[in-house]
């Protein structure tokens, strides 16, 4: 035959097309849902810091309160990264010759700041206030995870808008007594439930999480 004819095996396209018609949307949905999710893209960010500071040692083993270093967190929107002099409070005399601490000593001596890399970085069109959250009983651990167990700080939560809204819509499960906000391992007393305690606290702290656009995009 001189002319082209579709060979018999092209019949295989019939089931294949059906399969693709069902499979492609499923595939694309799965790929988009998981691939574009901040849980894939944002969670797990673990930059290498200029000084191998271990939160696990300081906040975990030594049990230092978060606020010892991040001292502005209760009063201002921004949780300040400590200056080198705060480090030198102790390291003046602890491991004073450690090479790992050299940048800290340098910084403390000449006033040049250490360039820590931000792990939990919201886009600049988002306004977030640490003090507002702490003063209403939202624990550090809710957003930052168990920092007291991290040798290297890692982003554990997606920090996406949906994730923020999740809590703003259902605050009960995320609220704890105000004096436990920095307690990473806080758990409700035996026999009590987190959501019940939270619901009571939401009442007593007068918590009305706002959900309008201008709360965060101001």
């Amino acid at each position: 035959m001189s002319l082209f004819h579709f060979p018999r095996w092209t019949d295989v396209f019939r089931p294949l097309m059906g399969l693709a018609a069902i499979g492609a949307p499923v595939y694309l949905t799965v790929l988009f849902y998981y691939g574009a999710s901040p849980k894939t893209l944002a969670v797990g960010f673990q930059p290498i810091q200029p000084v191998p500071f271990s939160h696990a040692v300081h906040a975990g083993d030594l049990g230092m309160d978060c606020r010892y270093c991040h001292s502005t967190v209760e009063d201002s929107a921004h949780a300040a990264v400590p200056t080198a002099s705060t480090c030198m409070n102790c390291h003046e005399r602890i491991l004073p010759d450690s090479p790992k601490l050299l940048p800290v000593r340098e910084a403390a001596r000449n006033g040049e700041p250490l360039e820590w890399l931000r792990v939990h970085d919201l886009p600049d069109y988002v306004y977030f206030n640490h003090s507002a959250h702490l003063s209403k009983g939202v624990g550090c651990v809710e957003c930052h995870g168990r920092v007291d167990r991290m040798d290297v700080v890692t982003q554990e939560q997606p920090l996406s808008m949906g994730w923020c809204l999740d809590c703003h819509r259902n605050p009960d499960e995320r609220i704890r007594p105000k004096d436990e906000v920095t307690n990473m391992g806080w758990e409700p007393p035996a026999g009590e439930y987190r959501d019940e305690i939270g619901a009571e606290l939401v009442q007593s702290y007068n918590i009305h999480p706002r959900q309008d656009c201008s709360t965060c995009h101001r």
Partner: peptide, 8 residues
């Protein structure tokens, strides 16, 4: 209307 990380 695609489900998204903004949850909106």
């Amino acid at each position: 209307p695609i489900p998204n990380q903004m949850a909106l």
